[in-house]
Each structure stands twice: as C-alpha cells, then as structure tokens.
Write a protein that binds this DNA or RNA. Structure first.
Lengths: 140, 140
DNA sequence: TTAATAAATGCGACTTAGTTGCATTTACAT
DNA sequence: ATGTAAATGCAACTAAGTCGCATTTATTAA
C-alpha cells in the first residue's frame, strides 16, 4: 500500500451518504491496494471472484467520482481510469509509458499564472488536465 | 479565414504521398475555414452536400492525423476533434467552455523543465497533453 | 491514351466503453 | 420489524470508431 487511504471503506461510504454494499466495498478495497489508476475493465478483472453486473460497476464508478471518492482520469486512451482520491494526494498528474502503459505520478502541476490569465480573460471555475507520455526507461 | 493555411489542398496531399479525392479535398477545404477544432460529426454535417460513408471519413481523419496534416485533439469529451495543423500555428493548447463548448487557443505551453525532468528520469520521446475548461465570460 | 496497380471508398457487420429503463432486491432509518 | 429510497441485474441501446471485403478511382509507367 503506497499511500495512506481511508482505513474503512464502509465509513467512507457512509460519510458521503452512500449505501455500503458488498460490491462497493470490494471496489474500494481493491482500489486501495493499487498504486496506479485502473480502467473499469481492470477493476472488473480484479474482482472476478465476485459476481456482479457491468452496468452496476459503471454506475458505482460514476457515483464515486461525483462524490469525490475516486478521481476519474482520462489519459486519452479511449476509456477512463479510476484511482482513490485520498486527501494526502489529491491533485496530481501522470505519465504513461507508450509501450508498457505503466503509469507514474509526476511531481508538478500547471503554473498558477495560467489559471490567473484565463480568469483575467473572464473564465470562471477554470480546471485543467495535463498528462505526459513517453517511452519509459525499462522499455527504451 | 483566421490563419494562413496551405493554399492548395491538392498539393498538400501530394506532398504527403496521399491521393487527392473529392471527399479529401472537401474535408481539408472545410477545415481550412474553421477557427476551432471540429468533431468528426461536425465535419460530417458541414459536408452534408457531399455523399460519403462514415467509415471513409474516419479513415481519412486518421490518415491525415498520422501524416501530420491534422491535429487530433482530445478534450476529454469522449470523442476527438480535428484541426488543420498549419506550420505557423502548430503546437498549442485549448480551453473549452463547460457550458457553450466554445473553444479557444491558449497562449502558453507546459514549461520546458517538466519534459527535462522526465527525460532525467529515463523517459524518451516525451509528449504532453494539456487543456483547460471553465465557464466563459459570455456564459457566466 | 491506356493499362496496371495501389490506394481509397462503400457497405455492412462489429467493437468497446458506457448508458438507460424497468422490475427486483437490499441497506438502512425508524 | 418494516417502509422506503437506493442499489442491483438484466437486456437493450448508444456513440464513436474499426474492420473485412468487394468495387472503384487516382496516379504511374508504358
């Protein structure tokens, strides 16, 4: 376990006013063990011992993302990835290897003045997405 | 016409070793007139006087993107947008309004040291994606 | 100018990621 | 213990894009 996560998925769900169900607990516990964001399909495979419907998984992932329990990440792969949104680690960006698809967190964010500039142009609630890709050391 | 584009789509296609066909010329001429990147569906509508197949459009857009004639842009909307990749204007980033979906080019790019850092970590051929969203002045 | 050929197209079926309607079941508050 | 809203399963659907294959077209070389 790389980062400190909410110790108790049940408590976490309750704190967001969401019901605690076996699937939901399994999803959150599974994501707690991950150090990189996973695709819905990967989560599904990781939970293969449990029997559940695809639609339910997608619904839960969406619900959790809206509730701020998960970050929904788009690395331009044509699908989303999900990671636990733990407070200690909440906003960050990624680099994905173009070959092995390994994902790492990068230790920087877009400069503040970019947002300020856009606010100066009249934009409100400015958010950003930024990610990198490249051939990683072990693939090169 | 906001920017200077290749004056002759036929010449452009030839220069990339691609065949010049009525649809391809229409796609490129149409995109020459746009100041914001368009989705395949929007291009399709803009070319409604011509009769062509969806698959052919997608194939052309892909071919053009690979050839560097178009930039394929992903603003996290669940589909791609395409814009002419004119030399004068080649690398840039966008902001999209969360309400009216108007897209503007932003006048900044990721700081050089980010790429240098990642190269220092062993990454090769590092590329990035960055885009912004927010409520634009007229929607606020 | 024409014939050869490689590339582009049309058609239809398919795929992937995700959504939706609806009936049923489950978690939780009382 | 029970009522109710939320969650689930199922099946059908959607949007964006892809693929195989037969046909047509643009370009090359004769």
């Amino acid at each position: 376990m790389k980062h400190q996560h909410y110790h108790d998925s049940e408590t976490l769900l309750r704190s967001k006013g969401l019901k605690s169900t076996p699937l939901r607990l399994a999803i959150l516990d599974f994501l707690n063990e991950q150090s990189a964001p996973l695709a819905a399909e990967e989560i599904s495979k990781g939970l293969s011992e449990i029997d559940f419907d695809r639609a339910t998984l997608f619904r839960s992932l969406k619900t959790f993302s809206k509730a701020g329990i998960l970050n929904m990440i788009d690395l331009g792969e044509g699908f989303h990835r999900y990671e636990k949104n733990c407070e200690l680690h909440h906003h960050h960006h990624h680099i994905i290897c173009t070959s092995c698809k390994k994902i790492e967190i990068v230790p920087f964010c877009v400069p503040d003045q970019f947002k300020k500039f856009l606010q100066g142009k009249g934009y409100r609630n400015v958010t950003h997405r930024m990610d990198f890709s490249g051939l990683c050391k072990s693939c090169a």
